[in-house]
């Protein structure tokens, strides 16, 4: 049986999630290549492909209408489309700009008027095409990606957690950020990362987005009461990665 054909495509993103795919180390990566045929992956090879695909990994948000035909073409060719990384899943950090009007001047300075910087509201790629599965995270958890691929190779839907990061912190006995006077968004953040940040003494910023039903009002209350944030911050705090999953989505 021919190996399933896999390709990577990128839109509005930093391509860091694709880099994660090269970070398995040789033994794991070479073993994986026995089971899939990577036909397009510009982080590691120069070939481009036109053939039908089994799995298309799409990284990056949909933020320019001009990208729609390319997304649609990928969808037509691919049996399975995976929104790969938070930008593709929910527009992640890119969606911050949906809430500002002066970002171009702020980010690009004198180049702000260049035409290729023209873009619209940043959204997940599922706003343009049908997405079959989501690999969340900024960046993705490469071990979870490996399980997603393994599951798909066996014709099984991947298992993606819908519980908060707190569960994973507790399982590894991490000291809660709130217990040391810090803040954390883990109570509403989707787990699956293994909670490495709080274990390293860094708050969870919800880089995998929210769980399906986050209690955002309670989070605002707890941030206000226990994290000692300046007034008004708590309400906006989650915007960094979940701007498109909040009540004030644009």
């Amino acid at each position: 049986m021919a190996k399933p054909k896999v390709a990577f495509f990128d839109f509005t993103c930093c391509e860091g999630c694709q880099i994660e795919f090269t970070n398995y180390g040789d033994p794991v990566f070479l073993e994986l290549l026995k089971h899939v045929d990577v036909v397009e992956f510009r982080e590691a090879m120069s070939e481009k492909c036109r053939e039908p695909l089994d799995i298309a990994f799409i990284e990056g948000s949909f933020s320019r209408e001009a990208d729609r035909p390319r997304l649609e073409e990928i969808r037509r060719r691919a049996k399975v489309v995976i929104a790969y990384g938070q930008c593709a899943a929910t527009a992640g950090i890119n969606a911050l700009k949906n809430h500002t009007s002066d970002y171009r001047k702020f980010v690009y300075g004198k180049d702000a008027a260049l035409p290729h910087l023209d873009s619209q509201i940043a959204v997940g790629v599922d706003q343009a095409i049908k997405v079959d599965y989501y690999a969340y995270g900024c960046p993705v958890n490469k071990y979870e990606v490996l399980q997603i691929v393994s599951h798909l190779l066996h014709g099984k839907d991947p298992v993606i957690p819908n519980y908060p990061v707190c569960v994973e912190c507790k399982r590894r006995e991490t000291i809660c950020r709130f217990d040391v006077g810090d803040y954390c968004l883990g109570q509403t953040a989707r787990a699956g990362c293994g909670a490495p940040c709080p274990a390293d003494g860094i708050p969870c910023e919800a880089c995998r987005g929210f769980v399906d039903k986050p209690n955002h009002e309670a989070l605002v209350k707890v941030l206000d009461k226990r994290a000692g944030m300046p007034k008004g911050w708590a309400r906006h705090k989650t915007r960094m990665f979940t701007a498109n999953q909040r009540g004030d989505v644009k």
Partner: peptide, 13 residues
């Protein structure tokens, strides 16, 4: 349960 996050911390510990 108004402020419950369904975060499972109470169960997990």
């Amino acid at each position: 349960a108004q402020d419950c996050f369904s975060c499972g911390s109470c169960n997990t510990v």
